[in-house]
Write a protein that binds this DNA or RNA. Structure first.
Length: 483
RNA sequence: GGCGCUAUCGUCUAGGGGUUAGGACGGAAGAUUCUCAAUCUUCAAACCCGGGUUCGAUUCCCGGUAGCGCUACCA
């Protein structure tokens, strides 16, 4: 595989984009044998460093009469384009008829000129693996500029030169390039080179059926990565957009399986709407299958991000510090790993983890009592008695040592509250969960209580409240409410 | 405007001259659980329109319509 940097548009190219691009590719699990970072037999791999090659071939085409000099000024071209806007048609190729000798003289005299390719006067046909035979009439394709008057070559030209020189066999790209292809085919022919196979893949659209763009939210690879989408899920989803295996029922494929199963011949020619929900669903499947250690490690950054954001709310953190983040020490990471495993069945994106675990980090008894979600629970007949009994047990009981409560001890207390008040099932569990987490729904107490207690014993910027601290806060808030 | 590409459930798609038009996401209902999520079961949901070819067309052909793309000295 070859990585080539197409940077002939100076305005849109920046060195840092290159690193970003390589990061994205590596993250996706795509690797290359040759490229700007590791060299290879076809070096250089940046088009901006291959200018001499492009100039040479352009001059050759010029000398062979397959291309010509164009002296049109920017203003002239603008004017013509405006007229076409209304009347239709293509660029007039007006400089094509200038006598080559005269053109040579004008260039020598210093007049600015671009080089245009002569499109032959016959239909241009080519084969496309997903679209079949495609034909364009010669009259609808204008003579393209291959070398700008600035000396910088144009994409449609360099791509042909490089693909041929680098021995590219299959040109696979978006179908927005389909209309460019006749120009490129004409170029291959003018150069006397054989034409590669083409495969034009359909456009990916947003929910509004417009081409996917920044407006639609996550559209860069980095975005998905930040959301906690696993690369294998993204690759799998993208493959499914426009492709299905024969039979059409299987949907989950690893990169390796995809390499084996995927075939361009089965790619659909019609455009597809990007469905975030389905991506998230696939991501959940992959999270479930992934090694827990990997998920725990990936999850870390989302917690630290949360902690930094929390701190920024109260302390005036420097942007530099917030950016850098920080890695917690092992006792904390071990605890966070347990936390992740507790909540990971609930999420389809890793960045949802802190939000899911918010009951652990952000306990607020007052808000819990005022929450509309808890309204109903508050009105249940047993609720008040359960509150009183439970609060009394935790705060009064010697066994309920602060921060040292075990799951078994907690269970015993819950059972005692049950027999004392006569509440059971929802009537028992919902009010208690409300006291502990602020919400009537959440994970099993058996797993939650040890995590809460262990968390309260850790020292890091984010203090986790222990069970008894929660109960204390709740009791105060509740008493105020009743009073 | 010209040219090109495309058209099966809301979305991604399988299929293909005669099928109960299949699967997945999402939706609805149910089971399970103290609850939410997960999981399982069930259900609803589609061949763009008009002509032709044919015994028969969603499938093949033509036209229309719609969507998208190109129409740059952008990539």
């Amino acid at each position: 595989m070859i990585l080539r940097i197409e940077d002939t548009d100076l305005e849109r190219s920046e060195a840092r984009f290159e690193d970003l691009l390589m990061d994205d590719l590596k993250w996706l699990g795509l690797d290359w044998d040759e490229g700007p970072d590791r060299g290879g037999p076809h070096a250089p791999y940046r088009q901006s460093e291959r200018l001499e090659i492009y100039r040479e071939h352009a001059e050759r085409l010029l000398a062979e009469g397959k291309a010509y000099l164009c002296f049109c000024t920017e203003e002239e071209l603008d004017r013509e384009r405006e007229r076409r806007q209304a009347e239709g048609g293509i660029y007039s190729d007006r400089c094509r008829t200038i006598d080559p000798e005269e053109a040579k003289r004008r260039r020598a005299a210093g007049e600015a000129s671009a080089i245009r390719l002569k499109i032959p006067e016959r239909p241009i046909r080519f084969h496309d693996i997903v679209h079949g035979e495609v034909e364009f009439a010669s009259e609808v394709v204008s003579d393209p500029v291959i070398l700008r008057s600035s000396g910088m070559p144009v994409y449609n030209y360099v791509v042909v030169i490089d693909d041929a020189l680098m021995k590219i066999t299959h040109v696979i790209r978006g179908d927005d390039h389909l209309s460019n292809t006749p120009k490129q085919v004409a170029l291959y022919e003018a150069l006397g080179w054989s034409v590669p196979e083409f495969a034009h893949l359909s456009t990916i659209l947003g929910g509004d059926r417009e081409r996917l763009s920044k407006r639609h939210g996550a559209t860069s690879i980095k975005n998905f990565r930040d959301m906690g989408v696993l690369p294998e899920a993204l690759v799998n989803y993208l493959a499914l957009l426009g492709w299905a295996p024969s039979g059409g029922t299987r949907e989950i494929f690893t990169l390796k399986e995809l390499v084996k199963e995927f075939s361009l011949e089965r790619v659909t020619p019609s455009s597809a709407v990007f469905d975030m929900e389905k991506l998230y669903w696939l991501n959940r499947q992959y999270i479930k299958r992934a090694a827990p250690e990997r998920i725990n490690r990936l999850a870390l950054s989302y917690y630290t991000k949360m902690v930094v954001e929390d701190m920024a709310r109260t302390v005036n953190l420097s942007a530099q510090f917030a950016d850098a983040g920080f890695l917690p020490a092992p006792p904390i990471t071990d605890w966070l790993a347990k936390l992740t495993q507790l909540f990971v069945p609930y999420v389809s994106r890793l960045d949802e983890l802190p939000e899911r675990a918010s009951a652990v980090f952000h306990y607020d008894a007052k808000r819990a009592l005022e929450s509309p979600d808890n309204r109903e629970v508050l009105d249940w007949p047993h609720t008040k008695a359960v509150f009183t009994s439970f609060v009394g047990k935790i705060l009064g009981d010697e066994s309920a040592r602060c921060g040292q409560l075990t799951a078994a001890e907690f269970k015993t207390i819950v059972n005692q509250v049950g027999t004392e008040t006569g509440a059971k099932g929802k009537a028992l569990f919902h009010p208690i969960r409300m006291v502990i987490t602020g919400s009537h729904s959440g994970p099993d107490f058996d797993r939650l209580i040890p995590i809460l207690e262990a968390g309260s014993r850790l020292t890091w910027p984010q203090h986790v409240l222990s069970v008894c601290e929660r109960v204390k806060e709740f009791a105060q808030a509740y008493n105020r409410l009743v009073a």
